[in-house]
Design a binder for these strands. Sequence first.
DNA 1: ACCTGAACACCGTTCAAGT
DNA 2: ACCTGAACACCGTTCAAGT
Lengths: 195, 195
Amino acid sequence: MTSSTRGPGQRAGLDRTRVLAEARALLDEVGLVGLTMRSLAARLDVAPNTLYSHIRDKSEMVDLLLDEVLADVPVPTPGRVRRDPVGALRRMMTASYDALLHHPDLVPHYLTRQGARGPIARRLGEVMMDALGHIGLTGTSAEKAMRVLIVNTIGFAAFSTEGGRDAGPLPTREVRASHAHALDWLLAGITGETG
Amino acid sequence: MTSSTRGPGQRAGLDRTRVLAEARALLDEVGLVGLTMRSLAARLDVAPNTLYSHIRDKSEMVDLLLDEVLADVPVPTPGRVRRDPVGALRRMMTASYDALLHHPDLVPHYLTRQGARGPIARRLGEVMMDALGHIGLTGTSAEKAMRVLIVNTIGFAAFSTEGGRDAGPLPTREVRASHAHALDWLLAGITGETG
DNA sequence: ACCTGAACACCGTTCAAGT
DNA sequence: ACCTGAACACCGTTCAAGT
């Protein structure tokens, strides 16, 4: 079951996407602590070092998983962003908060590692800059506003998930309300910036 | 040098405070990644398992270090808090931000673990609640405001120190400015809460 | 190109024993 | 009470070799 009889040279039918899909599944089951190169290899029924044929190292794998989480965040259309930029920002940040809550273990890494720097995260960043532009912010002040919103979201997501996957039914209502409240305060500050 | 010739039963003159002091020194030198039970034992010139005579496990040690970092935050006097509660909050959060920046590796743990729950952190929390009370907030709304301010500070500290101890001369000016700006927006929202 | 066996250089922690 | 040797159950990663 754990390691079949397969000699060197005999394929196991693995590819990069399969490895990543199984990594995500394993992450959901056992958390980041349980997601080791060796446990992932066991699940795929290959030797641990086989993974290095498909992935550079563990940190690359984690980075890819981080970006995938953000795929659950709906991207508003340019028209919608133009018509209601503040609402678009509010929805994006709330959806991001919810997406992050589904993967408590990963959250701290968004703040630590360059984290949200994969293609999906970059796309979200572009849309945010677009929305801020419609509010009247550009350049460094827009970047500052974006940082503020991102930190608020990731910070509260991390705060909501203390202790990883053991701390009760995920978003204690109070913390979720705090995130929404802080978001409003920040958006008020950001829009007031231009007046 | 690394391991002297000492038989079982022969004391090394260790105690809990000495262990913690040396752990903090080692942390400053090599970062959290380099702070292992074995490296700390080597520095103290004892066997690795000796540490368990003075500390329950590694997580307890990290928790104690987390709390120690906050000792650098000046606690305002009750009179000062009464006279200028908003200013007191601003100074406390800014000082906390700066203190956290001195220990980049530790920052994510303040959001992840119950983190800031040691005696020093609890004392700071009490003073914050006192200040919020003078502004006019009590109960759950005061707790919400406190959460918002704490998340903002820790979040930006984490954001300031991407990649731990390798990312340039610590606070990129822009991020530090963002923290100050967000702090003002949040304090404005908090004080507006009561009007 | 994909996979293996074997090994390297580590971890945190426990257990029994010594003084 | 404090410390040791030895061991357990792990890690991530590399290297040479096989098809």
